[in-house]
């Protein structure tokens, strides 16, 4: 399973790279890719800084590096890419890689849900939005706003604080996953203990969808009966 995912992830990455190279000039895509690789490196180094597992590399671990690195790379693509559609494709990559992470920490069901919902529905929604707002045609020269340096500082600061936090908690050191829950358990919990929240969640979805339709619907021009229209 893990190996399969690794292969799949590698394929997806290569596909993404090809897409990027095929549609845009080298200069505009190389820079983010460089940053992306750098980030992967940073991630690997940071991970080992806290866990001392550099000596115990084994298959799932390696696959996790690959999948996690790709997820990070996708995330960087989303926020750094210079083309809207590329960003969307990078997002899909990240979402799928996240599913891989779920599988790796033995939450298979969530991984499947992630692929179905995010990889399928949400990404298609976003691509539709790009299409409907004619993003490509009206795309501005700069995709970043004027405050991007401040954003970089903020994001970087947040990341630093969070990572330092993770390193500080002793109780989390040396924990590895052993047992995991099956789909049966989740189903029982969802329809038994959490039946009411589940129903409410479905209600929230329905309301959100109705609201989305109402908001997005085109303006209605009041139609007048033929006779009245003539009188005007």
């Amino acid at each position: 399973m893990e190996v399969l995912f690794g292969v799949f992830a590698a394929l997806a990455f290569i596909a993404a790279l090809r897409l990027v190279f095929a549609t845009n000039s080298v200069q505009t895509t190389l820079a983010p890719l460089l940053v992306l690789l750098l980030a992967g490196l940073v991630f690997v180094v940071l991970s080992h800084e806290f866990t001392d597992t550099i000596s115990s590399l084994h298959a799932p671990q390696v696959v996790f590096y690959m999948v996690g690195g790709l997820a990070l790379a996708g995330g960087m693509g989303v926020v750094f890419a210079n083309d809207l559609v590329h960003a969307a494709l990078f997002l899909i990559m990240t979402l799928l890689m996240t599913a891989g992470v779920f599988v790796l920490v033995s939450a298979e069901f969530l991984g499947l849900v992630q692929i179905l919902l995010y990889g399928g529905a949400v990404s298609i929604l976003i691509i539709f939005a790009l299409m409907l707002t004619r993003a490509r045609e009206t795309q501005a020269l700069r995709l970043n706003g004027p405050q991007w340096p401040f954003a970089l500082v903020t994001g970087g600061g947040l990341g630093a604080v969070l990572i330092l936090m993770v390193g500080r908690v002793d109780a989390w050191k040396g924990l590895t996953d052993t047992t995991y829950k099956t789909i049966n358990d989740i189903g029982n919990a969802l329809f038994d203990t959490y039946a009411l929240p589940f129903e409410i969640a479905s209600l929230v979805l329905i309301v959100a969808l109705v609201g989305a339709i109402v908001i997005a619907r085109a303006e209605e021009t009041p139609e007048l009966p033929a006779g009245q229209a003539e009188q005007r």
Binding site: A39, F50, H58, L162
Partner: peptide
């Protein structure tokens, strides 16, 4: 098998 911190760091970076 995968240490918890690695996953958390991934999530923090994302």
């Amino acid at each position: 098998m995968i240490p918890l911190q690695q996953v958390l760091v991934l999530s923090a970076l994302l």
